[in-house]
């Protein structure tokens, strides 16, 4: 087969072209959805923080531990939303128009960073949250009878331990497995770009 025929054959493949207007509608939908997602995640943070501040304001905690607890929980929320926004932001391509070679290099860097961020951020989130809750509880628990105090702390500790030893590793394993696979594939494609 003459290789110039390949080009003719290649161009023989025709495809339906959606009207430009339809595509623009899609683009707008896409934009709206993206905006909604960002608004929603940030709203979660704001609502939680406002709630905590309201507690602070109306409940007037006396112990400093309660206040520290509130701050830590808000911080944990903040970290959670921040890392969520980060991973959403990574989807936006700033280097969409660079060469394949550079693009893959960049993609790999982003993925490796995500790998690190996920682990660190998730750990930090859980630690701050646990610490915050434990501190926050000191004040209300101190007004309970001993049995109830033990019960309240026991249940909370149980829930936190369950999170730390079951939910956290599971979440991490899931994320990491996906990322690792992705990284291997990108590395594999990159090896095709070695000059030979």
């Amino acid at each position: 087969m003459d290789t110039s025929n390949f080009s003719e054959l290649w161009k023989g493949q025709k495809a339906e072209q959606p009207a430009a207007a339809d595509l623009l509608i899609k683009i707008n939908k896409f934009k709206k959805r993206n905006r909604l997602r960002i608004v929603l995640t940030n709203l979660t943070l704001i609502i939680t923080s406002v709630l905590m501040i309201l507690i602070w304001y109306f409940y007037q905690p006396e112990l400093v531990t309660t206040k520290i607890g509130i701050v830590l929980v808000i911080l944990a929320m903040g970290i959670f939303v921040y890392s969520l926004n980060q991973s959403l932001g990574a989807l936006k391509d700033t280097n969409a128009a660079s060469s394949n070679q550079e693009y893959l290099k960049n993609l790999l860097t982003i993925k490796e960073k995500q790998h690190y961020m996920q682990t660190t951020m998730l750990n930090l989130y859980f630690i701050l949250l646990s610490l915050g809750i434990a501190l926050y509880m000191i004040e209300p628990v101190s007004q309970m009878s001993f049995v109830w105090a033990v019960f309240a702390y026991g249940m909370t500790a149980l829930w936190l331990l369950f999170n730390w030893f079951y939910i956290r590793p599971r979440q991490m394993k899931n994320q990491q497995a996906k990322l690792n696979e992705m990284i291997t594939t990108v590395e594999n494609i990159q090896s095709q770009l070695k000059q030979d």
């Binding site: 128009a97 660079s98 060469s99 394949n100 693009y103 993609l107 494609i189």
Partner: peptide, 10 residues
């Protein structure tokens, strides 16, 4: 074409 091929790679 860069955008298109990068998107394929993604």
């Amino acid at each position: 074409f860069r955008i298109a091929s990068n998107n394929c790679l993604r």
